Amino acid sequence: MSDKMEVYYFSPTGGTKKVSGIFAAAVGKEAVWHDLGDKQTVIEQPQGELIAVAAPVFAGRIPSVVREKIKMLCGEGKKAVAIAVYGNRAYEDALLEMNDILMQAGFTVIAAAAFVAQHSIVPEVGAGRPDAEDEKEIRAFAEAVKNSTSAENIHVPGNRPYRPGMNVQVTPLSLPSCTACGACAKICPTDAIANEDGKMATDAAKCILCMACVHACPLQARILPPPLQQKTDNMLAAFRDIRNKNEVFL
C-alpha cells in the first residue's frame, strides 16, 4: 500500500473524529482528511489506494449526509475500511449500510469496525469513551488493517431492508440567552438553521438531529426541547451503567 490514506468522516460532536484520529495515527500513514459535515467542501475523489470512512450511528443507520456523500465516491478497485461509531446502545444496520454503499461504489471493503463513543444526546451514556481500553482496541484494529493483504470484501452484521431512518419531528431550539451569533447555522451540515428576524430558526425537514449546533454554541444557548431530552434520557437509562463492546471484522 502507498504511504497515504484518505479519511472521509462526519463528526458533529467530536466522537467520530477522535476514533478515526486514533485509527489513522496507528495505521501510520499520512492522512488526508475529508470532512463530510463541511457543506463548503466539495467531496474530492480518493487518490490513494486506501480510504477509511467513519460515521456516527443515528438510530441504527448512518446519517443521510454521509450516505449521500459517499455515494459520490468512485472506488475503482481501491481498498476501504468502514468505521461506525455508536453511543453505547447499538449500531444495528449502520455498518452494513456503509459497507453496501462502498461496495456499490467499487471499493473492496477489507475491514470494518464498530467502536463506542460518548452518546451525543445523553452524554452520561458511554461517558469518557473512547477511553484507554478502547484506544488499545482501535490501535490493534489499525495494526491489522496495516498488515492486511486481503483483496476480498468482509461480511458484517445487519439486516436488509435496513431499519427505518430517523424521523425528526422536533429540533434543537435556542434559549433566550442566544445572541444570534450564527455559530449554529455555520456548523449545520444540512443548512437547517437560519437567522429569521434576529432569531435562529430550525427547519425540521432538513434537521438530522446530529447535535452539531448544540455542541458548537459558545454560550450553551442551544438545547433539545426538554420533553425530547427527558424522553431520550429515559430511553437510554439502562445503558448508563453498561459497557458495550467494540466489534471488528477482518
Rank of each mutant, 00 (worst) to 15 (best):
residue 107 F to E: 01
residue 114 A to S: 10
residue 87 G to L: 09
residue 88 N to Y: 00
residue 226 P to I: 15
residue 191 D to P: 05
residue 101 I to G: 01
residue 49 E to C: 03
residue 54 A to K: 01
residue 63 P to W: 08
residue 133 E to T: 05
residue 222 R to P: 00
residue 51 I to N: 03
residue 235 M to A: 10
residue 54 A to Y: 14
residue 155 H to V: 14
residue 228 L to F: 15
residue 196 E to D: 06
residue 185 A to G: 01
residue 50 L to V: 13
residue 227 P to E: 12
residue 62 I to R: 00
residue 40 Q to A: 07
residue 197 D to P: 04
residue 178 C to W: 15
residue 163 R to A: 10
residue 155 H to W: 12
residue 243 R to D: 15
residue 177 S to V: 15
residue 128 G to F: 11
residue 118 Q to F: 09
residue 13 T to Q: 02
residue 57 V to Q: 00
residue 65 V to Q: 02
residue 38 D to P: 07
residue 236 L to V: 07
residue 122 V to S: 04
residue 40 Q to C: 06
residue 94 A to H: 02
residue 24 A to T: 06
residue 187 I to L: 05
residue 152 E to L: 14
residue 175 L to V: 05
residue 197 D to V: 15
residue 31 A to R: 00
residue 29 K to N: 07
residue 138 I to V: 12
residue 211 M to R: 03
residue 191 D to S: 14
residue 117 A to K: 00
residue 90 A to S: 10
residue 166 M to G: 01
residue 30 E to V: 14
residue 145 V to F: 11
residue 235 M to T: 07
residue 178 C to T: 14
residue 176 P to N: 03
residue 166 M to S: 01
residue 237 A to Q: 09
residue 54 A to T: 12
residue 111 A to K: 02
residue 146 K to G: 08
residue 45 Q to K: 10
residue 95 L to I: 12
residue 167 N to M: 12
residue 193 I to T: 08
residue 165 G to H: 08
residue 155 H to E: 09
residue 235 M to K: 05
residue 235 M to D: 06
residue 236 L to W: 10
residue 201 A to F: 12
residue 16 T to Q: 02
residue 67 R to K: 07
residue 208 I to C: 04
residue 71 K to R: 11
residue 132 A to D: 06
residue 171 T to H: 14
residue 74 C to A: 11
residue 181 C to T: 15
residue 117 A to F: 08
residue 51 I to H: 04
residue 21 G to S: 06
residue 38 D to H: 11
residue 146 K to V: 06
residue 227 P to Y: 13
residue 129 R to H: 06
residue 47 Q to S: 12
residue 74 C to S: 13
residue 43 I to Y: 12
residue 231 K to M: 08
residue 63 P to N: 10
residue 219 L to N: 04
residue 20 S to Y: 08
residue 106 G to L: 09
residue 246 N to G: 02
